[in-house]
Amino acid sequence: MKKSVLVITLALWMCAPAYAHGVGFRQSDMKAVTLEFFYSTGEKMSYREARVFSPRDGKFAAQTGRTDEQGRFAFIPDTPGEWRVIVRDEEGHQCEAKLVISDELSAADERASASQSNSSLPQGTELLIRALLGVSIIFNIAMIIRWRSGHAH
């Protein structure tokens, strides 16, 4: 009996720190900025690494995480200025979204401009034009080399 009491007392004593670090939650009414990331093919950038840089510190990420299955990522800006969200995959594809948050910290006022990214790529006809342009440049280089070589002989 004494042993049982001792064991229970010890167990409760060991659990005490857990009670000291209790956790909780409450619903926040702050407005979040939600972004969707996708490849030039239209495919969503699902479960990709995301980093948020605040206007205060452009070097160290203020928040890190992953996009969801639909390529969405949300964060809550707490200061006005230009915020950057960088999402990248393991293959080196990277999408950087720049958002200017107004003084009121209103998510509705943000101006998003994607840059340095696959998503900034045009789709459809323009993508086709760029692809054809690339192929054309390659063959033009080859023809110039061949022509010059013919002249050399």
């Binding site: 692809a131 063959f139 061949r146």
Partner: peptide
């Protein structure tokens, strides 16, 4: 230089 077109063809395939 006789293989330059072949090189361009494969470079294009890799690009696309």
């Amino acid at each position: 230089t006789s293989r330059i077109v072949r090189t361009a063809l494969l470079s294009s395939a890799f690009f696309l």
